[in-house]
């Protein structure tokens, strides 16, 4: 554990709290992509089911259970409030996730991490590829609506920050732990890059106190 990884995990937890707080305070799931949340739930299932067979630390186990639990709790809350969106979600949450799923599965089968062809390792690699692109339905939804509530914006920012910190952690581990995972690094870079536009708009609008609207 190093400071970057800890900050990454805390950003991740913060993003989940912000999302749930947004839904609670507005009593609405407007502007939140159900598809992105469903993809995250699938990411956590395929990556963290090893919690039953492989023990790392109490911290590791607790966080895995937290991420699994909150992702399904979020889906449950969103499903319950599905009619509260100001615009029917099915008309704007239209990103075709099939391509993300098929692409991630293909990459995991062709290039499993460390070239280890086990079920758990292929699922782990699949989860990394899928996570790297899982935000796309949310970003497309944001682009279509053109504006977002501030809590939604903070949620996406914290989520983007999370993988950005992991990239710093991997650079740190490469030099100080003599540890490196190419799959983690490449997917982490892609994931962080997908947020880069968003980071820029966030900096321009939110940090300067303006309403969040895409140009």
């Amino acid at each position: 554990m190093n400071i970057f990884r800890f900050l990454a995990d805390m950003s991740h937890v913060l993003s989940i709290l912000l999302l749930l707080q947004k839904i609670r305070s507005s009593n609405s799931v407007a502007g939140i992509s159900f598809k992105t949340q469903a993809l995250y739930a699938l990411v956590f299932v395929t990556r963290y089911l090893d919690v039953f067979i492989y023990f790392v630390s109490i911290y590791n186990t607790a966080m895995k259970i937290l991420f699994l639990g909150t992702s399904f709790y979020t889906l449950h809350v969103m499903y319950k409030k599905r009619d509260s969106g100001t615009i029917a979600a099915n008309t704007i949450d239209t990103f075709r996730v099939e391509f993300l799923l098929i692409g991630s599965l293909a990459l995991a089968l062709i290039f499993p991490s460390e070239r280890i062809y086990s079920v758990t390792n292929i699922l782990w690699t699949f989860s990394l590829w899928l996570e790297s692109v899982a935000i796309l339905p949310q970003l497309f939804m944001l682009q279509r609506t053109g504006q977002a509530e501030s809590l939604t914006v903070h949620y996406i920012f914290a989520l983007g920050l999370y993988r950005g910190f992991y990239v710093l952690n991997w650079i740190y581990r490469y030099y100080f732990d003599n540890w490196f995972s190419l799959t983690s690094f490449v997917t982490g870079i892609i994931q962080t890059a997908l947020y880069s536009d968003f980071f820029w708009v966030y900096y321009q609008k939110v940090l300067k106190g303006k309403k969040f609207e895409l140009p």
């Binding site: 990884r5 995990d9 991740h12 990556r47 090893d50 067979i53 492989y54 790392v56 630390s57 590791n60 966080m63 895995k64 991420f67 991490s113 460390e114 280890i116 086990s118 079920v119 758990t120 390792n121 782990w124 992991y166 952690n169 983690s184």
Partner: peptide
Amino acid sequence: LGDENAHDEL
């Protein structure tokens, strides 16, 4: 199944 490729990160 097991620790053939231990993933210690989240």
